[in-house]
Amino acid sequence: MADSTKTIEMEVLRYRPEQDTEPFYQTFSVPFADDWSVLQGLQYIKDDLDSSLSFRWSCRMAICGSCGYMIDGVPKLGCRTFLRHYYPHKVRVGPLENFPIERDLVVGIDDFIGKLESIKPYIIPREARTLEQGEYRQTPAQRDQYEQYSSCINCLLCYSACPQYGLNPGFTGPAALALLHRYNADSRDQGWEARSEIVNAEDGVWRCMLVGYCSEVCPKGVDPAHAINQNKVNSTLDYFGVLKFLMPKGAAK
């Protein structure tokens, strides 16, 4: 810490279920270097100031999706948000909005995990190829149709950016619907019908009111709002029974 010349005030939301009835902000003075992320600030607090602070993190390089927090009210990854951008002001760190707080910055994500499983996030071919038939082939243009949606790291910033999910937790939500579209848009997949019940449901794409903030906060450029809203058109076509004629690859199951 010898080369640190600056100290920032970090206000961290604390909630210890065994002793607190509601969350409260606790302020810590954190000496930091220019290249320190918010996550490193939290690690400094845990290592040197208060070891009881709980938060999730893993890779420190914006790929594991574990360290999503509300940073000054905006959902961001702690590892790619830098303390120097907030200094000399204080910075507020809270758990992701729209999720129940388990402890301090740790939120309960059971609901999302259930939804992620429900959308069948794997390729459903009309007929599985045998080993003798070889690999599934795909052109670059076909890959472009789903690649951006496959960049999702399940960090849940989009759920924290979605007031609809906060108001109606039944909503399947941005990341799960974007991943659902990722498989539907894959030329190797013919699983529209297997997933259509989720898309067409009231809690599916139709619950989205196109606030669009999910796509703003996504650290991976997935654009969930685009995945959801183009499927309002698909859902309508499906309702009128014309979608299956428009799908070049045909529907399965």
Binding site: Y15, P17, E22, P23, P163, G166, V211
Partner: peptide
């Protein structure tokens, strides 16, 4: 476990985007 659920009142005033 004793999950704390935050209220949604005034959600649209929390962020200029909203």
């Amino acid at each position: 476990r004793k999950p704390y659920v935050r209220p949604m009142g005034g959600w649209w005033r929390r962020n200029p985007f909203f």
